[in-house]
C-alpha cells in the first residue's frame, strides 16, 4: 500500500518517491518524471526512520547499504509489489507486464514459477476447467509429528487443498484430462493424496478416452508419509500402463523443479516428454551427487537443456507457444483426412 508521495529534485531531475508499507518491511519506490521506475530501496533493519535518514544523509561510503536489495527475503518480496526482478538477467519489470507475458521474462526468456491456478488460466480454454477430487486431503498414516499442521498451513497459504490440482478441460477445443502439480504446496511433494488424485485423473482420461496431460513440479516423495509415498510411484505407473495399453495418449510437461520420485515415475512416462526452459529435472540432488563422485558438475547439470542434450526429452517448450504446440500434437493424434488408415 502506498501511503505517501514525495517529490524531490536531484541533479536537475524530478523524482517521485513513494513510500510503501508492506506486511514485512518498509519499501521505497522511486519514479522519475516520466513515471518510470527508477529504483527501489528496502529497509530490513531500523525501520522507516533509518531508511529516510539513510536516503537524505550525505554518504561518503560508496558501499551504501540501501543501494542494493539486501536479503533473499527482500528479493522474494519483490513479486508482491508492482515490480519484479528477474533472477536470471536482473532486469526489473512491471509485475503486470510479466504476468501478461505468462510469467516469462521479457528480456531473457526466464520462466518464473507458475502455480496451478495460473497454469490453468494460461493453458486451458477459458472456463473449460472442471476440477475433480478437489476436496481430497491428507491423513497422517505414520502419525508423524506436526505433519497435518504443516499441510494445513500450506492449505491456507496456497488456497489449494493439496500439491496437485486435477480435472478436465480443453485446449483449443481438444478435451483432455490433466493434473497440475504446484510446488508452492509442500514443495509439490507426493504423498498419498497426490498419488491418488493423479491416478484418478489418469482413470478419468481412460474412462472418457481422452488424452492425459501432466505438468510436474515436485521435490519428490513426501517424507512424512514414508513408504506410502514411495508406493505412489508404483500406483501412478500401473495406472499409466493400463491407460497406455488402452491406447491412451500421455503427455508429460516437466516444470521447475521435477526431481526424485516424481521424475522417476509419471514425469518420465509420457509418450512425449517435454520440459520448460531452464527447469531443474533429475533423480538425485546435486549436492548428494557432488559428495558421491567428488567432482565439479557442469553448470547446466540436470537442467532441461542438459536432459535434451542427453536424449531424455522430446523437446523443450517455451510457455509462450506451449498451447500452440500442444494443440498441434493433440490434433495429430486425432484420426482424419482422406487417407485415414483402414487397418484392423
Amino acid at each position: 500500500m502506498i501511503w505517501a508521495f514525495l517529490l524531490i529534485k536531484w541533479s536537475d531531475q524530478f523524482f517521485e518517491v513513494r513510500f510503501e508499507l508492506s506486511l514485512f518491511k518498509e519499501r521505497l519506490l522511486i519514479y522519475d518524471d516520466k513515471n518510470l521506475p527508477y529504483g527501489m530501496i528496502f529497509s530490513n533493519e531500523g525501520g522507516l526512520d533509518k531508511l529516510l535518514k539513510d536516503l537524505f544523509t550525505k554518504n561518503t561510503n560508496k558501499k551504501k547499504k540501501y543501494a542494493t536489495i539486501p536479503t533473499e527475503a527482500a528479493k522474494s518480496d519483490v513479486p508482491e509489489g508492482i515490480m519484479t526482478k528477474c533472477p536470471s538477467c536482473k532486469t526489473i519489470m512491471y509485475t503486470k507486464e510479466l504476468n501478461k507475458n505468462l510469467k516469462v521474462c521479457l528480456q531473457c526468456n526466464y520462466h518464473f514459477a507458475m502455480n496451478a491456478k495460473e497454469r490453468i488460466i494460461s493453458f486451458l480454454d477459458e472456463g473449460s476447467f472442471e476440477e475433480i477430487n478437489e476436496n481430497m486431503v491428507s491423513e497422517n498414516p505414520l502419525n508423524f509429528p506436526n505433519y497435518l499442521e504443516k499441510v494445513e498451513k500450506d492449505r491456507q497459504k496456497t488456497k489449494i487443498n493439496e500439491a496437485v490440482v486435477t480435472g478436465c478441460g480443453s485446449v483449443n477445443g481438444n478435451r483432455i484430462a490433466l493434473a497440475i502439480m504446484d510446488s508452492t504446496f509442500r514443495m509439490g511433494s507426493m504423498g498419498s493424496v497426490v498419488g491418488e488424485k493423479i491416478t484418478r485423473a489418469i482413470e478419468k482420461a481412460d474412462e472418457l478416452s481422452i488424452p492425459f496431460i501432466i505438468f510436474t513440479a515436485s521435490g519428490g516423495a513426501r517424507m512424512q508419509e514414508g513408504v506410502l509415498s514411495l508406493m505412489q510411484m508404483a500406483k501412478t505407473s500401473v495406472a499409466l500402463k493400463r491407460f497406455s495399453d488402452n491406447g491412451g495418449l500421455i503427455i508429460s510437461i516437466m516444470t521447475h523443479p521435477t526431481t526424485g520420485g516424481v521424475s522417476a515415475s509419471f514425469a518420465s512416462l509420457g509418450d512425449y516428454n517435454f520440459a520448460e526452459p531452464g527447469a531443474l529435472i533429475g533423480f538425485a540432488g546435486r549436492r548428494v551427487i557432488e559428495q558421491s563422485i567428488r567432482e565439479e558438475l557442469p553448470e547446466d547439470f540436470q537442467t532441461a537443456e542438459f536432459l535434451l542434450k542427453h536424449g531424455q526429452l522430446d523437446a523443450i517448450l517455451s510457455r509462450l507457444d506451449l498451447v500452440e504446440k500442444i494443440t498441434n500434437l493433440l490434433e495429430i493424434h486425432q484420426p482424419g483426412g482422406e487417407l485415414e488408415w483402414q487397418g484392423n
Binding site: V238, A267, F283, A284, F301
Partner: peptide
Amino acid sequence: AYPGKAAEERGQSEAIARNLF
C-alpha cells in the same frame, strides 16, 4: 539407485520409471 553424474546423463529417472510401468 546410484546418485552420480553418469547415472543422471543416462536417465536414472527414466530407467526406474520405465521398470515400474
